[in-house]
Amino acid sequence: MTAQRTRPGLSVPRRNRKPFYLGVVVVVCLLGAAHVLAGRATDFSPGALVDGWHGMADFLAEAFPPKLDWDKVVQPALEACLVTLAIGLLGTTLSVPGALLLAVLGMRGRNPVVYQVSRSIMSFLRAVPDVVFALIFVTAVGLGPFAGVLALICHNMGVMGKLWSEAMEEIDSGPADALRVAGAREAQVIANAVLPAVVPSLVGLLLYRFDVNVRASLVLGLVGAGGIGFLINQSIKLFQFDVLATYILLVLVLIIAVDLLSALVRRRLND
């Protein structure tokens, strides 16, 4: 029906816009220049990699086969993996109350002063790397996993607070409006309209952060917070590359296990 009724040969009106090719050329040139400068700044040189290939070959030759001595290598490594996991777990869980508070206070559209203060605290906590927090806490509680837990709590509070407050801002404000009309106070609105709607995405983000924090606690181990990171650091210092290979394999298993677990729970939540 519409085929017969359309007017034939209707010309497309010209768009009233300047050609943008010049702009594209300028942007590409600027990006190219930035990458050349970045290459200089990082001593980027494929030649050096080719020239030094036998260094890597020696390393790999020493690393394989991995040393699978149960009593001396595998068992201590498994125990250390559990410590790493424990640091990540406590660092994530214990940051929940603080992150929730910062997230609620840092939601747009409420008191602007509270919003700015909360955003600033979260920015600060995110800007300071967890390794730096760890070094600070080491001066108080000494080397060991506890300093790692404290460091992760601080850093994760900032990151998770930001992710959570953004998730809360994104939800439909309708149910909250409905409760405000019914005369509910702000805390009641948050508890009965905002939180129930966002809990699935909050838990999803929590699991994602647990995943990240387990890997972060590995790095914290390198600076003395215990766990498998600490053993990896030792094996490098002692040039025991076959032992190092075993550690890295176990880390791989640990990371994949955590990843699978969080993916499984997240899928269940979204149903």
Partner: peptide, 19 residues
């Protein structure tokens, strides 16, 4: 409509009376 979809019908109705 603006109900909290994850909560039960009864809990949603209760929310009208919490003020």
């Amino acid at each position: 409509i603006h109900l909290v979809r994850r909560r039960s019908a009864l809990d949603n109705v209760c929310a009208g009376g919490i003020a």
